[in-house]
Design a protein around this nucleic acid. Sequence first.
DNA 1: GTAAGAGTGAAAATCTTTCGCATCTTGATC
DNA 2: GATCAAGATGCGAAAGATTTTCACTCTTAC
Lengths: 138, 138
Amino acid sequence: MENQQIKEAGLKVTAPRVKILGILENCGKRHMSAEDVYKELISQDEEIGLATVYRVLTQFEGAGLVCRRHFEGGQSVFELNSGEHHDHLVCIKCGKIVEFVDLTIEKRQAKIAADNAFQIEDHSLVVYGICGDCQNKR
Amino acid sequence: MENQQIKEAGLKVTAPRVKILGILENCGKRHMSAEDVYKELISQDEEIGLATVYRVLTQFEGAGLVCRRHFEGGQSVFELNSGEHHDHLVCIKCGKIVEFVDLTIEKRQAKIAADNAFQIEDHSLVVYGICGDCQNKR
DNA sequence: GTAAGAGTGAAAATCTTTCGCATCTTGATC
DNA sequence: GATCAAGATGCGAAAGATTTTCACTCTTAC
Ligand SMILES: [Mn+2]
Ligand SMILES: [Mn+2]
Ligand SMILES: [Zn+2]
Ligand SMILES: [Zn+2]
């Protein structure tokens, strides 16, 4: 369960960490802001401060348990690290998020970086649009 | 000159707007944060408040004169709207920015969006890496 | 030239995220 | 199981970026 993953990440097993990891795993929402996690904790009557949520998420990120995303809209969004890199399609109306991987794009990026003598460290690709459901709602 | 562009954008021609547009056009730095613009104004002994810089840049963005970018690092970065869309390669050591356009990537994005019934509105692709110069500096 | 509506600077307010610190837990040890 | 140092936590304050408010000034249409 969560305890094991936290231990393996080299972190002490504490109630906030177990709770937060549990929420990320079972809450149903794959992409959550710190605030989202905090509200979920509150709704479960957990007494965990927002600062702790940020601290824990940042530690989880450092330990490779979660990934932090910077979509438009101010807040960072966190998701469990699935192991494989992926990019995102985000609906600007309802916030729906679709994940995708495209080898062609990944390869082109590598080529572009190489052509410019850049050694790639990371990249962020987010496509914003209106999802099918939201298109029909007009 | 600037006056014309501002008028055409449907904005009144005021000293702050003319000055700020002038800086974006002639300052030599293509990508500038609001703070960068503000400092440049200060160095030119202009008495323009940072709030006005933000206001004006946001208006310019709305009018299509500039584009706002959200690279990692907290601050938004602005650049003159060159008319053609492009993406960025950013050096995480020195901040150097290289612009690029890749039709293959653009097409793949369109296809991915279509496959998922999304109507694309916008997208952001930023590749972070270490530029040639910075690689040699180690 | 004038008036009405826009725009401006400075300060205050927001919003998200991080810090400082007194207090509590965890996990290794006896 | 009791002990204890290192590490965590909660809370409020602080920070950094951007926006809003407000009293005053400027632009523009007439
Ligand atoms: Mn994802
Ligand atoms: Mn650019
Ligand atoms: Zn939608
Ligand atoms: Zn560099």
